[in-house]
Design a protein around this nucleic acid. Sequence first.
DNA 1: TAAGTGTATTAAGTGATATAATACACTTAT
DNA 2: ATAAGTGTATTATATCACTTAATACACTTA
Lengths: 133, 133
Amino acid sequence: MSGQQVGQLRFRIDFSQPLYEQILEQVRSSIAKGEIALGDKMPSVRELAQELRMNPNTVMRAYQELERDGLTEKRRGQGTYVTSSAEKVSRFRTELASQYIETFMTQMESLGLTWDDIERYVRDKTAPGKGGD
Amino acid sequence: MSGQQVGQLRFRIDFSQPLYEQILEQVRSSIAKGEIALGDKMPSVRELAQELRMNPNTVMRAYQELERDGLTEKRRGQGTYVTSSAEKVSRFRTELASQYIETFMTQMESLGLTWDDIERYVRDKTAPGKGGD
DNA sequence: TAAGTGTATTAAGTGATATAATACACTTAT
DNA sequence: ATAAGTGTATTATATCACTTAATACACTTA
């Protein structure tokens, strides 16, 4: 995988989406999946900007959104840290999942597909021999 | 619902997304759900532009994409028509659904959720008393 | 005091989106 | 033929989101 490692974080950046969104989503994912531990220090705005060859303003935009998500905390003069609250991470995961599902269901409804159609489709697509994922 | 009716088509336009994308998606949906019949004549580029208070170029951009989707056919000098091929519509629905599902599954995976998690979630969310949707 | 934090401001450039005005080729009806 | 209605193409302009750049400030730690 052509991924860039910065501390505990891994990034794959392209030009298909806004840069700040890619940072945002990939850090969210790393936190949600526990790839970076609760309470860990994040790369500084300037450091990450340098590593990813971006402007510090672009990185900061992503970092500010992460704080609004409740996933990080900033300590002026010190740096940015992953939240120590497992509950905040859990709550975030639930909220975002809910949002993704809602959008998805709207899309399926616009095609005239029911939830049963979707289940059938996914079962076929994933593992025609295994039970779970 | 604050929707605008143009021929057999219904539109709800806002400023949250590109205008041509909204036209595209809403016409796609109308065709996929059979709200506009196979072979029916679409509003002309100029007519729809006037009804929706948009520039003809913006409408044309959506119409060109619809033809690439295989959902419409253009007859020079006559107008734009919904395809008469039920199979094309069916194929389009399958392709777009597949694409939506893939994106959705990627999002869920990025949150560390499995397909079983999703099923449980949706069952709770939709109808706690009925079977299908 | 120095170095490293997050933050704010101002300026500039790029690309997608949208509008506007105009023109052309084709089809149908008169 | 003529006129009206089709899709299509071109050129110009405007706006906005995104991104970079340069700089400065307040705070914390060593």
